[in-house]
Amino acid sequence: MGHASMLNRPEQDAGKDVWNAYLHERANIAGDVEDLWCHDMGCAAWIVVRRNTISHTIYEAKLANEVRDAD
């Protein structure tokens, strides 16, 4: 799944521009990003991965539900 921005789901009535941005738009950065990955073939955990899209270096990985709870 795409950018970790998917974690910040808007309110139902936030308006169509907010929703369009949430679902479709992406910063799509060539560099350091926060991605949302899923351990598909394993424990099914969703993970926020801080990584670099040019070098594929992985800086940090956190469980998504921990990131969400912290917000």
């Binding site: 789901r9 949302l36 899923c38 099914a44 955990a45 969703w46 998504a64 969400r68 709870d69």
Partner: peptide, 15 residues
């Protein structure tokens, strides 16, 4: 569906 449920629970409604 199973993957979707996990996404919703872990990423959207962990509470």
């Amino acid at each position: 569906v199973m993957k979707h449920l996990e996404f919703v629970h872990q990423c959207l409604r962990p509470e």
